[in-house]
Amino acid sequence: MGQIEWAMWANEQALAAGLIMLTGGIVAVAGQFKGWYFAAYAIAAGVLVCLLEYPRSKRKKGSTMERCGQKYLTAVVKVFGPLTRNYYIRAILHAALAVPAGFLLSTILGTVCLGIASGIYLLAAVRGEEWRPIEQKPQERPHVGDTIKQPPSNPPPRPPADARKKLPAEVGGQVNPIPVEAE
């Protein structure tokens, strides 16, 4: 059985937590809750978490499905270097971002989810995982001369090569344009 890549699970959990925190913050600000300043904080923290977590990391084995438009945010995450690549730092960042949003009922679900993501990131960091960008390999275009082995000798429609009958004239090297039928 293969190794579990915990960072992949933490990424999905943190992205969902950011969206939940953002939604809860919008609800609290729009509903004019008493602690609306916690809701405003939750909106900002939710946006920050979503921007940080949107680009997926490259898996060690197998293929990684890239999210739509991920390459633009991957460039931003790469700029910050070890601050965004190291999962110990992400675990601490998510735990710190989760605390203030926990004081408001509409954002508490996002807080709990972000706390869980922080724990999973800590587990991933202990296991030695690190964020690696998904980089596109340039696709080599095949050369025209390499793809065509032998051009066809007779016009379409052509029967399969094994179904064609060899005429006696073809064996000698010349083809008779008018077929002769033996009686």
Score class of each variant (00 low, 15 high):
residue 68 C to H: 08
residue 29 V to G: 00
residue 54 Y to Q: 06
residue 168 P to K: 09
residue 32 Q to H: 12
residue 3 Q to V: 11
residue 27 V to N: 07
residue 18 G to P: 03
residue 131 W to L: 02
residue 23 T to P: 00
residue 148 I to Q: 04
residue 123 L to G: 01
residue 121 Y to R: 05
residue 150 Q to I: 14
residue 53 E to P: 00
residue 152 P to Q: 09
residue 68 C to F: 13
residue 137 K to T: 12
residue 58 K to W: 00
residue 173 G to F: 05
residue 4 I to G: 00
residue 70 Q to P: 01
residue 13 Q to W: 08
residue 84 T to P: 00
residue 83 L to G: 11
residue 32 Q to I: 05
residue 23 T to A: 15
residue 26 I to Y: 03
residue 74 T to L: 00
residue 175 V to P: 00
residue 24 G to L: 03
residue 87 Y to W: 08
residue 32 Q to P: 00
residue 91 A to Y: 01
residue 179 P to G: 02
residue 90 R to T: 06
residue 178 I to R: 11
residue 65 M to W: 11
residue 11 N to C: 11
residue 116 I to A: 15
residue 83 L to H: 12
residue 115 G to I: 04
residue 39 A to K: 04
residue 112 V to K: 02
residue 72 Y to Q: 12
residue 171 V to M: 13
residue 19 L to S: 10
residue 158 R to G: 01
residue 44 A to G: 14
residue 28 A to R: 07
residue 114 L to I: 01
residue 180 V to F: 07
residue 21 M to A: 14
residue 27 V to R: 11
residue 90 R to N: 10
residue 114 L to K: 01
residue 57 S to N: 08
residue 54 Y to C: 04
residue 15 L to S: 09
residue 33 F to N: 06
residue 45 A to E: 06
residue 75 A to D: 08
residue 170 E to D: 15
residue 179 P to M: 03
residue 164 R to G: 01
residue 9 W to N: 09
residue 119 G to S: 07
residue 26 I to W: 07
residue 101 A to I: 11
residue 157 P to A: 06
residue 82 P to I: 10
residue 128 G to W: 01
residue 55 P to T: 04
residue 127 R to T: 11
residue 55 P to C: 02
residue 66 E to A: 15
residue 101 A to T: 14
residue 62 G to M: 05
residue 128 G to F: 01
residue 80 F to S: 10
residue 69 G to T: 08
residue 100 P to A: 00
residue 129 E to L: 07
residue 48 L to Q: 08
residue 134 I to N: 12
residue 173 G to E: 06
residue 75 A to T: 10
residue 104 L to S: 01
residue 118 S to I: 04
residue 98 A to K: 03
residue 9 W to I: 13
residue 80 F to H: 06
residue 158 R to N: 14
residue 33 F to V: 13
residue 61 K to Q: 12
residue 154 N to K: 15
residue 168 P to R: 09
residue 73 L to H: 02
residue 66 E to Y: 01
residue 62 G to L: 05
residue 67 R to W: 10
residue 54 Y to M: 05
residue 88 Y to A: 03
residue 40 A to I: 14
residue 76 V to G: 01
residue 11 N to Q: 15
residue 97 L to I: 11
residue 168 P to F: 05
residue 4 I to E: 07
residue 46 G to E: 05
residue 90 R to D: 00
residue 57 S to Q: 13
residue 178 I to G: 00
residue 96 A to T: 14
residue 123 L to I: 14
residue 177 P to Y: 06
residue 101 A to R: 05
residue 88 Y to C: 02
residue 163 A to P: 00
residue 47 V to Q: 05
residue 148 I to H: 03
residue 104 L to E: 13
residue 4 I to S: 05
residue 119 G to M: 12
residue 38 F to D: 04
residue 155 P to D: 09
residue 125 A to E: 01
residue 49 V to S: 07
residue 166 K to M: 12
residue 146 D to K: 10
residue 143 H to I: 08
residue 43 I to P: 02
residue 153 S to C: 03
residue 10 A to Y: 00
residue 151 P to S: 08
residue 51 L to K: 03
residue 50 C to Y: 03
residue 148 I to T: 09
residue 76 V to E: 04
residue 175 V to S: 08
residue 124 A to C: 06
residue 28 A to M: 02
residue 83 L to K: 10
residue 168 P to E: 07
residue 133 P to N: 04
residue 160 P to H: 13
residue 122 L to R: 06
residue 36 W to K: 14
residue 97 L to A: 12
residue 152 P to K: 11
residue 6 W to V: 02
residue 50 C to L: 15
residue 166 K to T: 13
residue 153 S to D: 09
residue 111 T to I: 07
residue 13 Q to N: 08
residue 135 E to A: 11
residue 8 M to T: 15
